[in-house]
């Protein structure tokens, strides 16, 4: 484990904690896309099936369990919690997330390293994670006035992806036979999706004003 990987994982953890904090203490999920959260739950559920088949480290297992638990908890809050579900912007969150799932699945059936059940699901989760943020970005753009917590949440998610790219570069030069084309390309696509958001986030931060995305 190198410093970039650790920083990436911590940003990811922190972004989820921010979101849970917002939902649990303020009892609001305004500006949060349920579509994106459902996609993440599906991403983790299909990727971390390997909890049962292989052991890497206690750190890996605990993180995987946390990501699984937190993603399903957030979806539960937004769908079923008496107070939280009322703050959900259902009419704005209209992205057809089903249209992302099917193409990712077909792509995983066609492009993978090995044609086995777990391997295809793992690949599917990589493709799906790359585009899972789209409903959230669309919702942010529609809401215009983004509240701070939601903005920070997306920022730390993007930071997580950026650190992972540094981690791959580092590992490529320090380890032998470290090639992961599928992971790299989907990771690059995913990070690129944040570029526009980052630009406006940094701009609003420098001018110390509220984050506003252009229509």
């Amino acid at each position: 484990m190198n410093i970039f990987r650790l920083a990436g994982d911590m940003s990811h953890l922190f972004s989820i904690l921010l979101l849970l904090l917002k939902i649990h203490t303020i009892k609001s999920c305004a500006g949060v896309s349920l579509k994106t959260q459902e996609l993440y739950a599906l991403v983790f559920a299909t990727r971390y099936l390997d909890i049962f088949t292989g052991y890497i480290s206690l750190y890996n297992t605990l993180m995987k369990m946390f990501f699984l638990w937190s993603s399903f908890t957030i979806v539960w809050y937004m769908r079923y919690h008496n107070v939280v579900r009322r703050s959900y912007d259902k009419d704005q969150d209209t992205f057809r997330h089903y249209f992302l799932i099917l193409p990712c699945f077909i792509l995983a059936l066609l492009v993978h390293e090995k044609f086995t059940f777990l391997e295809v699901l793992w690949t599917f989760s990589l493709y799906l994670e790359a585009v899972a943020i789209l409903p959230q970005l669309v919702l942010l753009q529609r809401t215009r006035n983004v509240d701070n917590l939601t903005g920070h949440y997306v920022f730390f998610l993007g930071a997580y992806r950026s650190f992972y790219i540094l981690n791959w570069i580092y590992r490529y030069f320090t380890e032998q036979n470290y090639y992961k084309w599928i992971t790299w390309i989907s990771g690059l696509v995913q990070t690129a999706l944040y570029a526009d958001f980052f630009y406006y986030y940094v701009k609003s931060w420098r001018n110390s004003e509220r984050l506003q995305l252009p229509a």
Binding site: D50, I56, N60, E113, K114, Y164, N167
Partner: peptide
């Protein structure tokens, strides 16, 4: 056959 990379990342 090419060995698959160990999936040690999250």
């Amino acid at each position: 056959a090419k060995e698959l990379c160990k999936k040690d990342e999250l």
